[in-house]
Design a protein around this nucleic acid. Structure first.
Lengths: 354, 354
DNA sequence: TGTTGGCACTCCATCCTAGTGAGTGCTTAC
DNA sequence: GTAAGCACTCACTAGGATGGAGTGCCAACA
């Protein structure tokens, strides 16, 4: 605004993504208005926006330039402009990061965590509902991974009829189970003996690192059972790759789009836990906080944007929060809500762990 | 067809719900056609249906009678007819019960259960997917209730920092957990001692029937911990009222309706596990297998029908299957699929239990 | 009396035809 | 570079016209 550079129409400010300050203001105004109304935005609607003190004619010429540069698009000639994915990208980058949450939302979050109780799973489930309420988006919450959690306890419980249950408690409080088949000649004593050996063997190391048992015992049947138990533990360790996913507010997708087809394809994706979890991980891995349109590469979600936020406990990653909405979602709100809820969730998980 | 009674236009056959055989045939034809096409059915489309060997004019007059009696409705004058909820009700009652599943479906079910493995929860989850695939409906699977299952094992695992986990294994293989807070002065030994007492106390009775401990031990701290443990067990027993629910194929609802609003309100219901579980229970309690339209009393599902099928193991109720679709869902298919899958699931659950 | 063919009628769906207005691009003047 | 004016575009809407699927009614018939 003060330097002459900023009035140049050519891309000059790398920091602004190649847009002079007025173009940036116009783009922001268009995005803001479109997020609210879902209607193409004309030059007239923009003239009163902050940072745009020029006539509609000038706005038009700037908009034409923004369209040439790929930030805006027209549904058809003589219609207003709609932001492209690139336009949203600029808008989001320019936000810099999550702003503060509105007081109402903060209040809701505080109340939620004040009254949150029960086991982790239930809390994560309800957190997804909270996020959906706050943002009007579909919320995804990925639970903490148990990959590195050490085994705190192993128990072998006979269920009768040649069936036993391996029950594992991990250091982070997670409980996992896996049923194993027993040999014909395994009685109570054998199960008990094998359980003891299994516990002694596995205690202290993460599930995936439980090694096969080398030293044979006096009773061969016990060895067989212990071997099954170890196999069960290892398979549990592998299955941990599939982190738990909690999806809340999937109905919001139906409100966001008016094309039933879009709703259907988005819901189909949401039903595939594996896809969703790895999608969130991929986005985080590429260093993004927001993935807009095709940036994440999942074709059926091309008209969606995803906000991801890692949840960490004492600086260690302990889960992920994701918000899914249309590309014209309310990014400032979504970012703020994800940040606040993520932080509070991390604290909360920390409290139970320590 | 052979007695003169059946040719009377007045309601004469209580067994037929007050419809002579031709009217019944016409109604069935209309329902069948409407299920397939979702378009109002005219008299011309019905003349070739089995049991209707009369002209379209006669069909028309019968249709008018069916409309007077509330079985059919017209979207507007000069349009074809659409079944009312009462019409569907007649259609379903007249089916008598689930027919056989088509060979393709049977094959799919067989394959599924041949390859089914893993823990119950995973199997139930995948079963909901199978049902959705088979019927193109949204499938709901309610897991076995653990109310009456005896406690097979109780364990108290310290998690450090005044926190311990009560881990319970029930006779049916279910594992439940609840964290409890420990008093300041509870060390490893106390936890271990309390765990032993808790186990001795609770073993063999269902969770809800675990009584408070009367006899005090030598160490007061141990008593405190045991008391917390018992409280935890009892609260787990109460929470069992909320049976586990697995919903599969919720995206199918989006395909079934073209009004986005309907989709949204149905999804909103599906998000409320408690509502769904008690809805299914209510329908079963009223002795129904199919609830059509407003029969179940949940207003947002007025344009839906629900097929329920109890899953039993050795004659004892062990879960519920539900199928949710539009009132013009394919009832024969849904009933057949629910029956077959329910039976096989029951067998399967029985195998693991014995 | 139940059934049938004929006939007039209804009304949705489709197509076309302006008319309207929001919005644009261009050109000229400052 | 900005502003003002102007012609133009094109979705959206409303108002007929048309066609066809479907109905209800009536008179004739077995």
């Amino acid at each position: 605004m003060t330097t002459s550079d900023e009035r140049t129409s050519e891309p000059t400010h790398p920091g602004d993504g190649g847009l002079d300050s007025r173009k940036a203001a116009i783009l922001n105004a268009v995005v803001n208005e479109y997020i609210g109304s879902a209607l193409p935005v004309g030059s007239q609607h923009v003239v009163d926006a902050p940072g745009v003190s020029v006539s509609s004619a000038t706005v038009r010429s700037d908009m034409a330039a923004l369209e040439r540069d790929g930030y805006l698009a027209q549904p058809h000639t003589s219609a207003g402009r709609i932001p492209t994915d690139k336009g949203y990208r600029f808008f989001v980058d320019q936000l810099g990061g999550p702003g503060p949450l509105d007081p109402g939302g903060r209040q809701q979050v505080r109340q939620f965590f004040d009254h949150a109780h029960g086991e982790i799973e239930e809390m994560l489930e309800r957190t997804s509902g909270l996020l959906a309420d706050l943002t009007d988006c579909t919320a995804m919450v990925v639970g903490p991974s148990h990959e590195s959690a050490a085994v705190r306890s192993v128990q072998l419980v006979g269920l009768g009829h040649r069936l036993a249950l391996v029950v594992v408690v991990l250091a982070d409080g997670a409980v996992q189970k896996q049923s194993i088949e027993l040999p014909e000649d395994a009685d109570e004593a054998v199960v008990s003996e094998a359980g003891g050996r299994l516990a002694a063997h596995a205690l202290g190391s993460p599930l995936a690192q439980v090694a096969p048992v080398a030293a044979p015992s006096a009773v061969p049947v016990v060895d067989t059972v212990v071997a099954s138990g170890v196999a069960a533990l290892r398979s549990l360790g592998e299955a941990d790759g599939h982190d738990q996913l909690f999806v809340g507010g999937s109905s919001r997708m139906a409100a966001a789009f008016d094309a039933v087809d879009t709703v259907r394809s988005v819901l189909t994706i949401l039903e595939q836990q594996l896809v969703v979890v790895s999608l969130l991980r991929d986005i985080l891995d590429t260093g993004l906080t927001v993935a807009i349109g095709t940036e994440h590469g999942v074709e059926p979600l091309a008209s969606c944007a995803i906000v991801v936020m890692p949840v960490s406990v004492d600086g260690i990653k302990a889960g992920t929060i994701g918000l899914l909405g249309p590309t014209r979602m309310n990014y400032p709100l979504a970012l703020a809500a994800a940040r606040v809820v993520g932080d509070r969730l991390g604290e909360r998980l920390g409290e139970s762990a320590r």
